[in-house]
Amino acid sequence: MQTQRGNAAFYAVICVMVFMSIGPVLLMLVNSFKLDVDIISGTSGLLFLPTIQNYETALCDVLWYEPEHLDFCSLKFGGAFVNSIIIALVSTILTLVIGSMAAYALVRFRFMGRDTVSISTLMVRMVPPAVLLVPVFGLWNNEFCLDRDGLIGGLIRDTFGGRGDVCLAGTHSGIILIYVAMNLPFVIWILQSFIVQVPRSLEEAARVDGAGPFQVFFLVVLPLIKPGLAAAAIFTFRIAWNEYLLASALSDRNTKTVPILIVNNMSEFNVEWGVIMATGMLLAIPPIIFTLLASRQIITGMTAGAVKG
C-alpha cells in the first residue's frame, strides 16, 4: 500500500516534469497551425481548424506554387533557411576536423607549448559571445578585408592579390570563421576525453604497418571515437544553428540566418503570432530531430563535458 502510493506520486512527478518541459513546445506547434484570429479570439484548446497557411506564408519564397492568401511574399524565410543550413553545416564539419586533430595532438604528443595551448583553450571557453561582438564587428568590417592595410588584411592581399573592397563581414565565411573559433575550445575539450580511451596499441600496430601519422589519425583513431564526434557535432551544430548576436552583427541582407529573421519580425509592433510560431517551429525542427535520434550521444557529451572538468 505504502509503496503503491509512493509509486503513484513518483510517476505523477515525472509526468508533471515531462509536461512542463514539452508543453511550451507543443503549444507552439499547435499555434503554428492556427490562424491569427483563432489565436487571439481565445477559443483555446484543440478545437480549431488546422491550417498550413502560416507555413505557406513563411516559406513563400521557396514554394513551387503561389499561396492564394498572399499577394506579396515579404518574408524571405527560405533564403534565410538556406543560409542557416550552409553556415551551420560547414562550420560544424570544419570545427570537427580541426578540433579532433588538435585534441589528438594534445592527448598523444608531448611538445613545446602544449600546456599553453591547453590552458588557453580552457580559458577562452568562458568568453561570452557578447564580449566578442565589438572586436569581431570592428575587425571583420575594417581589417579582415582584401584591400585595406590592416595586419592580416595586408597579408592576405600580398599573398592572394585581392582587388576589390571585400571584407569578411557580410559573407558566409565571415560568420563561419567566428563560429568555428567559438566552438573549437569546447570540441577540443570534449574529444580529448574520448581520444584518451583509444588503445595506443592499435595506433602502434598501424604505424608498424607503415602508416604515417595522418593515416593513423584519420583511418584508425577517428573511426574509434565516432560517439564522441557525434556528441561534439550536435553541440557545435546547435550553437551555429541557434546563434543570433554575432550573426546579426556580421550578416547583411543576403546572408542573414533564421534567428535574425525571427527577431526582426518579433520587434515590429504588430506581431503575427501564427507566422512567427511557424518560423520558430521550422527553426526548432532540426534540433528536435537530432534530440530524438541521438539523445544518448547528447547526454554522453553533456556528462563528459561536466565530469571530466
Binding site: M28, L283, P287
Partner: peptide, 14 residues
C-alpha cells in the same frame, strides 16, 4: 533535453 536544444530565440518567442 528538448528545451536545451531549441534556439534561445525560439524559447523567447514561446
Amino acid at each position: 533535453i528538448l528545451p536545451m536544444m531549441i534556439a534561445p530565440v525560439v524559447v523567447g518567442l514561446m
